[in-house]
Amino acid sequence: MKITYQGQYKKTALITGAASGIGYELAHIFARNTYNLVLVDKNGQKLSKIADKFQHKFGIFVKNIIKDLSVSTTPEEIFIDLQQASIKVDVLVNNAGFGNHGLFNETNLTAELEMLQVNLVSLTHLTKLFLKDMVNQGNGKILNVASTAAFQPGPLMAVYSATKSYILLFSEALANELENTGVTVTVLCPGPTESAFHETTGMADSELVKNKKMMSAKTVAKIGYSGLMANTTLVIPGVKNKILSELVRFTPRKLVTKIVRSIHEGKTKVI
């Protein structure tokens, strides 16, 4: 069953990490295109304001789920909640994620285990739960948000880069498995984006982002949404990001790793 609102028949998009950044901008685009929304984030105050705004502006239904995806039981709880509410998810957007910065032997283990749970395990779990119905019904879309960090090792952000590589490879494999099922998978790999991410990871002074004109979260979301609707498997916003992602394939991996570390240390400038 799909949610109806004001007598209209609409599809529903579930978006994790929807309270800010790319997640919020994607939610705004889906709302503008008259999708009902299921918004997941641990920031209930922000979700409440977003829901009120979108419902009044776009005439859609918004269900907020205030949950922390670093808790292992959260994906199952979300799925059961929606089943009990008879809400069918047509589009799953796995956007939630975070990173950290520093030498692996010095960084906080608890934070990294939570990162693995959010970036990798919860994404996989939610995909497993909602994919079965999509395949059975012969239609559905999944958008997984990775990063250009997925294309190479990331010294000083080792765990974060590894999780994004997983998302990229998992999504591409899944897209192949789902050919001719009516279900598509798109993986979005943005480069540095204007958001609070760099402050929270301690990367604000890195040459990767310092004094750089970064792509806005709004632009990244727009490109990601267009790629999703076009059934494109891999979406890399920005010509420079596309070129750099391809160059990695033709550069010795040891050299690439050294360059990335130098960038993360602030010693090498990024063009």
Rank of each mutant, 00 (worst) to 15 (best):
M203H: 05
S216P: 05
V248F: 07
K88C: 02
E25G: 01
E194Q: 14
M115E: 07
K164D: 05
G140H: 00
Q152A: 09
Q117Y: 06
V220W: 02
I3K: 01
Q45I: 10
L156P: 00
G140C: 04
E172R: 13
G227N: 06
T107A: 12
G191E: 10
N105C: 13
P237Y: 09
T181V: 13
A96Y: 00
A217D: 01
I50A: 03
T124S: 15
I263M: 12
G191A: 15
N36M: 02
Y225C: 06
T34H: 12
Y35S: 00
Q83S: 10
Q6F: 13
V93N: 01
V118C: 12
L255Q: 05
K210S: 03
N108H: 10
I142S: 04
K212C: 08
E179C: 09
G44Q: 05
L208C: 06
I15Y: 01
F98H: 02
L168I: 08
L120S: 12
S206M: 04
S147V: 06
I223L: 13
L103D: 11
V135D: 02
T73D: 15
N211H: 14
V220F: 04
V71K: 12
V187A: 09
T232M: 14
E199T: 13
I80R: 13
A158Y: 06
K269L: 11
D81T: 15
L26Y: 04
E106C: 12
G154K: 03
L169T: 15
G154P: 05
T186M: 13
I3H: 01
E179N: 12
L234M: 13
N36W: 00
L255M: 11
L120C: 14
A13P: 01
A19W: 00
V185P: 03
K164G: 04
V62R: 02
M157D: 10
L174G: 13
K141C: 06
E106T: 14
I236F: 09
K212W: 10
N105R: 11
D52V: 08
K132W: 06
Q6T: 08
L37C: 04
Q55K: 15
A51W: 00
A173R: 07
A150W: 05
L120E: 10
H198E: 02
D68K: 07
L26W: 01
K141N: 08
I223V: 15
V89F: 06
V185E: 07
L174A: 14
S262E: 02
K267W: 05
I65A: 13
P155N: 09
I142D: 02
V145H: 03
L123M: 15
T251A: 06
H198F: 11
V91S: 00
V260F: 09
L129T: 07
N144H: 12
M157Y: 07
E76N: 14
E194V: 15
K46A: 11
A111C: 09
F54E: 00
V220L: 06
C189F: 08
V135E: 03
P192N: 12
T257M: 10
V71C: 14
Y166G: 12
I167N: 01
V62I: 05
Y35F: 13
G227F: 07
M157I: 14
